[in-house]
């Protein structure tokens, strides 16, 4: 890109490294930033640097936070008897968006996969085992992905919590809202049948 000013092609190059951004989008974004007021560009820079400097893991739930412990762990209106176990911090935001869960979270930091070198000791499982009796948790809701690693991790968590006086539940499997029955695969459909509920 010799025909572009050096800094501009450098910016395009950096933007292109981002996920889902191709060369055309990168160029469009770069030209937009160039034409935007200086304050806007500075705000973007600051936001990027801040996210690297200030965001860290909560020492209790291992979610992402600026202050430790995180806002959810500090919030006294949260139901301390329910704990939702998720694989990644982004899953916390997925469940928070539903606004249907008022308990607290525990982020494992991944899913068990010996093939990829992720053993039990690489995840925050020991911390979970400590939290349950220490915080008087009554119910642990395992919300890992419904794939092979998610399933194994959920069953492992249930097994390791079995000696403690705590109920361990798993998110239900079912049909996507707004979907079509005949497009659901057999396993999803048979799990949805197993998990059916009375209408009256």
């Amino acid at each position: 890109m010799e025909y572009l000013a050096g800094p501009l092609s450098a910016l395009i190059g950096e933007l292109e490294k981002l996920p889902t951004i191709g060369p055309k989008t990168a160029a469009r974004l770069a030209f937009y930033i160039l034409s935007a007021p200086a304050e806007e560009a500075q705000a973007l820079c600051r936001a990027i640097l801040d996210v690297k400097d200030k965001v860290r893991f909560c020492s209790r739930c291992f979610s992402l936070t600026e202050d430790d412990p995180c806002a959810i762990c500090r919030d006294p209106r949260r139901d301390g008897s329910k704990l939702c176990v998720v694989a990644e911090a982004k899953d916390v935001y997925a469940i928070e968006r539903t606004a249907s869960f008022r308990g607290r979270y525990h982020v494992l930091g991944g899913l068990i996969s010996p093939m990829e070198g992720v053993g039990v000791d690489k995840l925050h499982i020991a911390e979970l085992v400590q939290r349950v009796p220490a915080e008087g948790i009554q119910e642990v809701i395992v919300a890992t992905n419904p794939n092979a690693e998610g399933e194994s991790t959920a069953l492992y968590v249930a097994r390791i919590l079995a000696p403690l006086a705590v109920t361990v539940t798993r998110l239900a499997y079912g049909l996507p809202i707004g979907g079509e029955l005949d497009y659901a695969d057999e396993v999803t459909l048979s799990r949805a049948l197993e998990g059916r509920r009375p209408l009256s």
Binding site: I112, P114, G119, V120, S152, L155, Y156, R159, I160
Partner: peptide, 9 residues
Amino acid sequence: KLLATYNAQ
């Protein structure tokens, strides 16, 4: 325990 989990699956 992980081995037992895998065996159950």
